[in-house]
Write a protein that binds this DNA or RNA. Structure first.
Length: 256
DNA sequence: ATGTCACTCAACGAGTGA
């Protein structure tokens, strides 16, 4: 099973890139973040006979969706937490052998805005509880998405300049590690050396041209899933397309 | 040089968020 995660940064602007992604990689499941539209708009922008759609849309901001091949049986996961549902940042599907959760963790900047940064930390804490629930029942779990965290100091060239940013602050990184400590592995750490891959290049300051990127899009998986995972792919070509998203698609392959 | 982009609201640009 091939699963892709991608912060598309507006489905309206980039539905053609999504179609290219599908044509190129034929993922079984696609986790999209920042679709930036309401449910009915998503259905208008993306028409497919091959994928079922689970959409958690919101007018103009955030918004996540899962596209899942029509031959795969699934149930939509319901999340009950108030804070986790405050904005359209999470959706999930349960399959026969595993559950897949798509997340768009709050950015949290600027950090001097107490409201924003504490929302991020509270949101991550709730995600940690959700993970705990799955792990304690031995259910296989895949969480993919934009985590808005610099986990390793090599996930950006100059980490020292990010240590007081909402993505690099120690509380954010601890919160991310707390999620992992429930019993998940970060797939990229198993296959790749830190500092060799980024998933986001800001539109500003010619970040792409200078290869000044961040690694903030991840797949966290339970041990059984890690055993079956054969590789992780960072689809850099998509940052070079006309009117690109600032994030690239990340793809994992799970055998069986 | 905030070396940009996408969104909304209410205009044809300002403000916001990333």
């Amino acid at each position: 099973m091939k699963i892709c995660s991608w912060n598309i940064n507006s489905i309206r602007v980039r539905v053609n890139h999504l179609n290219l992604l599908i044509k190129t990689h034929k993922p079984d499941v696609i986790l999209l973040q920042e679709i930036k539209c309401e449910n009915h708009q998503f259905e208008e922008f993306f028409k497919s006979t091959d994928y079922d759609q689970i959409i958690k849309g919101q007018k103009g901001r955030h918004g996540v969706a899962i596209l899942i091949k029509k031959n795969i049986d699934f149930e939509t996961i319901k999340f009950n937490s108030k804070i986790i549902n405050e904005e359209a940042r999470i959706c999930g599907v349960s399959l026969e052998k595993l559950s897949i959760i798509n997340v768009y963790v709050p950015n949290g900047n600027p950090i001097d805005n107490d409201e924003k940064y504490s929302f991020k930390l509270r949101w991550m804490e709730e995600l940690s509880k959700i993970v705990n629930g799955y792990i304690s029942t031995y259910k296989n779990l895949v969480i993919g998405g934009d985590f808005n965290v610099l986990d390793n100091e090599k996930d950006v060239k100059d980490f020292k300049n990010w240590s007081s940013d909402a993505l690099g602050k120690i509380e954010t990184r601890k919160s991310f590690r707390r999620i992992l400590s429930k019993g998940l592995f970060n797939v990229v750490r198993f296959f790749e050396e830190p500092g060799t891959h980024y998933s986001f290049w800001d539109y500003q300051k010619a970040s792409w041209e200078r290869n000044y990127g961040l690694l903030i899009d991840h797949f966290l998986v339970s041990p059984m899933i890690l055993q079956c995972t054969s590789n992780i792919l960072f689809e850099k070509k998509f940052r070079d397309l006309d009117k690109p998203s600032d994030h690239i698609p990340v793809i994992i392959n799970i055998n069986n």
